[in-house]
């Protein structure tokens, strides 16, 4: 996705949702993707599919324990997570979060907090948008229809490593689906039409 960062806000209070949208929209490269109430069924899975870069969550809006919610998220995606609450919230509500936004923060404080956490990463990531040799090899196998397990066996890697490579490929190319990756691979001759037709 390059420099742009998608932000999801989970907060049942509409005024706060809308306020955060306004503040986030003023930051360069930050895109307000979605506001959730916190009571949605399958909220964690909804977010996993959306795969936002930043999640701002008010733990009091969730209708499930915050630890359960964060664990489910972190198993699948790795967004930057901000807790959103009153400054006087109890310590056990604050401790699950590495970053906190408070209702009493002014606009500049909120923007500064978000930028501080979000910016250093983007520079480094943008420099290497080209696929590494390993990634190109894995892309080819994906396009030819192999599962992560099969790729791991073939290249003597762990499934976990293959998954990480695949995530990086998706990020670098900005393409998520296998058919999209196929178009890219064919356009760039990473795989030939003949190979595609013989994949069985």
């Amino acid at each position: 996705m390059g420099q742009f960062r998608n932000v999801v806000v989970i907060e049942k209070n509409y005024l706060i949702q809308a306020g955060l949208e306004a503040i986030i929209s003023e930051l360069p490269g930050m895109v307000f993707q979605k506001a959730c109430m916190g009571s949605e069924k399958n909220l964690a899975h909804l977010l996993i599919k959306q795969n936002p870069d930043v999640v701002i969550v008010n733990p009091f809006s969730l209708d499930q324990p915050v630890a359960v919610f964060l664990n489910t998220l972190n198993e699948h995606i790795s967004p930057l997570i901000f807790g959103l609450m009153d400054k006087s919230a109890p310590e056990n509500m604050k401790s699950p979060f590495a970053n906190l936004l408070f209702f009493s923060d002014n606009k500049l404080e909120i923007q500064k907090k978000i930028r501080n956490v979000c910016e250093p990463v983007s520079d480094e990531q943008d420099k290497k948008q080209v696929l590494s040799k390993r990634e190109a090899t894995i892309l080819k196998e994906v396009v030819l229809g192999l599962t992560n397990q099969e790729i791991a066996d073939k290249l003597f890697l762990s499934v976990h490593t293959v998954t990480t490579h695949r995530k990086n490929i998706n990020k670098k190319l900005g393409i998520k689906t296998v058919s999209g990756l196929t178009v890219y691979a064919l356009m760039n001759q990473l795989v030939s039409m003949d190979e595609m037709e013989n994949k069985g």
Binding site: G174, I175, K176, G180
Partner: peptide, 9 residues
């Protein structure tokens, strides 16, 4: 997701 990919390509 497919539409998203198409835009990117």
């Amino acid at each position: 997701a497919k539409i998203f990919d198409l835009k990117n390509i």
